[in-house]
């Protein structure tokens, strides 16, 4: 067992996870695992370390392996550290048809990294992903919960500029994402 007792969630996050459990019938608290992992990832620098996952297991009263199984199945959970800004570029058919490769090449050149890598200063991670449902506004990329669509290389430059001094890790959620019950 890893050292989960060193991990502490903020009181808000812990309360939110407890609140999420109310969405399911009694005894079905495992259903809160996916949102809880998102919350954990948002809180701990955009990725899930083993101690963080163990802590989630503890909060939801699950076996750690149940958490690892789930965390490693879904592509949005990062099991390795990522840069402050995680750039996810869609590369499937419609985006490819409209120039996604040029976008990826451009970012690789600008940041000096390849797909899947993080810049040495820890600011950016580039990840190519499969269809994000933005085919009509292709090409596109996602950073946190924001979709940047109808990309041109100039737009990409602006986005990189916008994110170069990000203070916090890009996140899929914010404090308003989930409604309290």
């Amino acid at each position: 067992m890893s050292d989960s007792n060193k991990i502490t969630f903020s009181p808000e996050s812990e309360a939110l996870i407890k609140n999420l459990v109310k969405r399911y019938p009694e005894g079905k608290h495992k259903s809160a695992l996916l949102p809880a992992l998102h919350i954990a990832q948002a809180e701990f620098n955009g990725w899930l370390s083993a101690p963080v996952m163990d802590k989630v297991a503890e909060l939801l009263n699950l076996q750690p392996i149940e958490v690892y199984e789930v965390a490693s199945f879904y592509s949005m959970y990062n099991l390795k550290p990522v840069g402050k800004c995680l750039i996810e570029v869609c590369r499937t058919s419609s985006c490819w048809l409209r120039g996604a490769e040029d976008v990826v090449k451009h970012i690789e050149k600008r940041l000096g990294i390849k797909d899947g890598e993080t810049t040495t200063d820890g600011k950016f991670t580039l990840k190519t992903v499969e269809c994000l449902g933005s085919c009509g506004t292709a090409p596109m990329l996602q950073i946190g919960q924001t979709f940047y669509e109808n990309l041109t290389l100039e737009k990409v430059d602006k986005i990189l500029e916008e994110w170069k001094d990000a203070g916090k890790h890009s996140s899929y959620l914010d404090e308003h994402t989930f409604r309290n019950i």
């Binding site: 392996i65 490693s72 199945f73 879904y74």
Partner: peptide, 22 residues
């Protein structure tokens, strides 16, 4: 009682593991 090993990762990367090799 108390499973510690399982299937992690997805598709043809899936593997049986204890993750932290317990």
């Amino acid at each position: 009682d108390g499973r510690v090993h399982g299937v992690i990762n997805r598709g043809d990367h899936a593997e049986i593991s204890t993750y932290v090799e317990q």
